[in-house]
């Protein structure tokens, strides 16, 4: 294996301090190559049967049924009318026919612990830890997510919130960036 010295800005990309879009055009190819070298894993989303998603949809329906039994009949009738009017306050997420498997990869030199937190796990930094894979600096996690739009960030050593350097990012409203995953 040969060693290669990357441009300092490409190193910042690998550290999660910059995104590909932040790199000058002449460095983007090098950045892409660096990420490919360090994250040589299959990242193609794969469609899987939506067993988990169907279970969640069923649970949601049962929760609603229980609520209906607890309410007085008049409220139940009113709620039914509201549903009939077609304007539910917060309908359950649309169950899709397939989950999408996504692999999250972060190159984080010197990190002791990395996780991913986002809208899919209630922003819980403890919910989805990444594991070391291949290179000692590369951290990986694989998740099955419902189709839709998700926001997330990596959490390094439990304190540092880092956007995915290879994904689109938006303002999180708190002065940081959230990565965006659209499936």
């Amino acid at each position: 294996m040969t060693k290669r010295e990357f441009d300092p800005q490409v190193k910042q990309l690998l550290d999660g301090e910059l995104t590909l879009a932040d790199l000058p055009a002449e460095l983007r190819q090098e950045g892409e190559e660096a990420l490919r070298l360090l994250a040589a894993v299959d990242r193609e989303p794969v469609s899987l049967p939506a067993v988990t998603w169907r279970v969640m949809a069923t649970l949601e329906r049962r929760r609603q049924r229980r609520l209906t039994w607890l309410l007085a009949p008049a409220l139940a009738a009113a709620a039914a009318l509201a549903l009939w009017l077609g304007r539910p306050a917060n309908p359950p997420a649309v169950a899709s026919s397939a989950m999408v498997t996504v692999r999250f990869v972060l190159v984080a030199p010197g990190a002791h612990q990395v996780s991913v937190a986002g809208t899919f796990n209630r922003w819980d930094p403890a919910a989805t830890p990444l594991v070391r894979s291949g290179s000692a600096d590369m951290w990986v996690a694989t998740l099955s997510l419902p189709p839709g739009q998700h926001q997330y960030a990596f959490v390094v050593d439990g304190v540092r919130w880092v956007p995915d350097p290879t994904a689109p990012a938006i303002d999180d409203g708190f002065g940081r960036r959230n990565s965006v995953l659209t499936l």
Binding site: L20, E32, L35, A39, R43, E44, P45, S47, V100, V102, R103, F104, V105, Y152, D164, T166, A167, P168, S179, V180, L181, T182, L183
Partner: peptide, 11 residues
């Protein structure tokens, strides 16, 4: 291209 975007979280 595949039916789902290959890019996020990595291209």
């Amino acid at each position: 291209h595949p039916p789902h975007p290959p890019a996020p979280p990595h291209p």
